[in-house]
Design a protein around this nucleic acid. Structure first.
Lengths: 342, 342
DNA sequence: CTGTTAGCGCTTTCAG
DNA sequence: CTGAAAGCGCTAACAG
């Protein structure tokens, strides 16, 4: 016997309400959308029918017809701590302004941004926030704000944070504490945000008159496994670093895990600083010192901008939010003696 | 001049692809959906046109027509830490199984669950997780799994956690440390989950042979402001409690804030235990001892069940996940002397 | 193998 | 003030 789906209970639709109230679908539609040209009497009867049947309009159908909705999208590649934080901030603003919000995870395949936008744009959502996009070429069909895009600058309105200044500050912080061999675990060289962070590191190193040793600069592609590998190599060096600056918290945590598996202590043997300040950073043992991006505030700012664009046809801008060093427990003075790996 | 919306760039649709490839829309549709009855030649030409135009099907329209989609919904009243954690777990499973996922925050108004379900059900999503629902009467039109519903037991498949046992454990933990006057800041008496937590408290108190003093039992409706008020009253009592058990972490944090504003120290003057283990609990100063619900695991479990229901027409079940006491820094021995409020 | 056509639920002219 | 009918983008019958 072939697969047989349980017949779904029919959804109640406009026609059901119309029949119940003894009017036409057109009239019900007018009542639902507060159009005038309906007598109070009829309207009351229709409303009653709506309540009794528990009717609620179908977003797909009305969006298709109207080419407009009051739903805003937040498009992410996946729900991880970073996007979850942004979502909280964005949702708070949207709800306050009377918009509903839909968060969509489009999967990891290349071009997910455009795909998600095309699938939802116009008929389901009236505008979108795209989180950490890497592909943003085509003119989108609805207003779009990019949050922390990896390539840039692009033509889209954007909210991001000042990774350059943030990383300069983190590097100086280590230098002030006596570190001179500071390694950098970067993300992906071709991404704008990664590039800025690395530039900040280089700037601070040179400004302090330290030697810029490029063997101390590695790329992780933000992949924890690669971060572990790079950390291992760095620690095996003739003259290993005493501190590690990481492109994000997840790679910082991976590096710290590896160091400890090798019998080292953080920060006694190796100081580590992350980037982002996702919730996990504070929970790590030892709590991770990191460069905080104000994720919720970034989400809120981006959503405000999007709403202005959708509602008032406002121009989008480029907003760069400040970062801030959060001092916790993963940085100490440089280890005095040589490294003994367990 | 009246408000004039910027004319949106037209979305590319099936008809555009058809024209480009020199075939009919029906043919393009077949190619898109991998139906057979299209020559390889034509199919190739169509695919080329799709790529060139960057076409991606419109979810609203195809859902409307097919009465089926491969998108699953996670319906929440708002995106707060609790639902964000569940979402992470649920999303991981859905993506692994080839489903897309849409999270929808329906607003706080009464009956948001039903409204969201009606608006999205069938045409946009093929099934839904409803998080902390309070209204679940009508037969939903698509498969639905309730996560941590507040009323229960209901007829819907459900994933929740064992609040009774969790609260018994937390209460015993305090008793073991010498506390005898233990207050309980409950949520909403009419909610099933709240009720179970309070029952656990009562059970443990009586099992230990302690007097059950109902003036120590307060209701907060999970509202931080009410939690503060209740805490204030408790501390003003002739014989104030030495420990506070809270229905969730947010009220526990509110209570701790108030206690400290009154000049008390946590846990020296007052021990506090929360419930849920949202990320904020660990970040609070002092880190909050709490009863952990495995939120991500609950989201994952619920999503697995939903997928089985949607795909294989499986029966839903009721899964109750274990809770676990997380010992942190907000519990100490009972204060020896009387309380001095600052 | 391909195209024509009807209709999913909804909103909007436009007649009555 | 009310309803009939067309059409949003898409898919599934059904002819050709």
């Amino acid at each position: 016997m072939p697969f047989m789906a349980k017949p779904l209970p029919p959804r109640v639709k406009l026609a059901d309400v119309a029949e119940r109230a003894g009017v036409s679908v057109a009239t019900v539609s007018k009542v639902v959308n507060d159009r005038y040209g309906v007598s109070e009497d009829t309207a009351a009867r229709v409303k009653e029918a709506i309540d009794e049947l528990g009717y609620a309009g179908n977003l797909g159908a009305s969006g298709l017809r109207m080419q407009a909705t009051n739903v805003l999208g937040v498009l992410v590649s996946s729900f991880e701590p970073f996007s979850a934080e942004l979502l909280k901030g964005a949702a708070r603003v949207a709800e306050g302004e009377g918009f509903e919000i839909i968060a969509h995870s489009g999967g990891a395949s290349f071009g997910w941004e455009r795909r998600s936008l095309a699938r939802l744009g116009g008929t389901i959502i009236a505008g979108a926030l795209i989180v950490t996009a890497t592909v943003l070429d085509a003119d989108p069909a609805v207003p779009v704000v990019a949050v922390d895009p990896h390539y840039g600058p692009n033509r889209l309105p954007t909210v991001d944070s000042d990774g350059f200044t943030g990383m300069v500050g983190a590097t100086r912080y280590l230098i002030d504490r006596g570190h001179t061999r500071i390694a950098f675990l970067g993300g992906r060289a071709e991404l704008d945000s990664s590039h800025l962070r690395e530039a900040g590191y280089r700037e601070a190193i040179q400004e302090a008159g330290l030697e810029l040793d490029t063997t101390l600069i590695r790329e992780t592609r933000y992949d924890p496994a690669l971060a572990r590998e790079a950390t291992r190599e760095l620690l095996m060096l003739e003259e290993p670093p005493t501190a590690l600056l990481c492109g994000n918290d997840q790679t910082a945590i991976a590096a710290a895990d590896l160091a400890r598996e090798l019998g080292l202590e953080v920060p006694a043997d190796l100081s580590i600083i992350g980037f982002d300040d996702i919730p996990d950073a504070a929970l790590y043992e030892p709590a991770l010192t990191t460069v905080r991006q104000p994720l919720q505030a970034m989400g809120a700012e981006a959503m405000s901008m999007l709403i202005a664009m959708v509602r008032d046809d406002a121009e989008g801008r480029h907003v760069r939010m400040p970062t801030e060093l959060v001092e916790r427990d993963s940085v100490g003075p440089p280890r005095p003696g040589p490294l003994r790996l367990g």
